[in-house]
Amino acid sequence: MCETLLDVRGLCHSFPLGAGRYLRAVDGVSFRIRKGEIFGLVGESGSGKSTVARCVMNILRPQAGSILYRGVDVCDPAQFRANRRMLQTERQIIFQDSSSSLDQRMKVADIIAEPLAVNHIVPPRGSLRAEAAFQLRYVGMDPAYLDRYPPELSGGQRQRVAIARALTMEPSLLVADEPIAALDVSIQAQIINLFRHLQAEHGFTFLFIAHDLAVVRYLCDRVGVLYRGKLVEMAPTKELFDRPLHPYTKALLSAIPIPDPRRERARTRFHFDEAAFDRTGGFVQVSPEHFVLGGKEAEP
């Protein structure tokens, strides 16, 4: 059995809306990610995917629940402080919008080497610049870009720079918060292939957040489906796509367009009644790897 790297238990987070009202962004989400696997988290806009990522990375502080990374509760200030260096060097994040996640006034070389400089790590390849050049080549870009500024790069190139910055630390856990949503389709394919290639090479554990199911199917080992802050179904990718159980998952999967006009027209859309969504049920195990929210949907 593989070792668990990240264990999220009963994560809850809500945002104040003002006037004493709160928006429950994440409501009791639990999942485990094993070492070396690619775990996909899918869901529509506003389902709480990014909030989960930000809680995992300590950018947001969850109101309830715990997040254990290598057995360390990262939400506990005392445990976080004691393991700060380990947590900050081993976990890295890639954001959705590379135009805002890269400092416009820093050169590409400085951006990529920033994690090393911050943590005072002696660069393994001599200088920080040599390290940046190596990482840039590694993500498929010419080192001639080292002295450029982010606004001078295209969206795909900027996202590659963001990936290179995350990789300089040789992370054990890479969290990617919709890393391809802001790119056009041909660049998305390049970046997805790059992720596959890098993951095979590095073997890092990967929490991949997306709303594009085709991408998730191609890239991920296991998938969790989020809906309105609740994890409604979690299964290995193949199992989930072949045998979706929760009505929301069925609706989501039936919404994937098929690149064949005749089959696309014949496709039946499964409609999910939002009002009927029951958020109270517990998480039920239907097969060793397959979990679904609420008991009654478990019947195929």
Partner: peptide, 10 residues
Amino acid sequence: EYVAAARCMG
């Protein structure tokens, strides 16, 4: 986000 990223890297 780049400040968030800088915080994440320590």
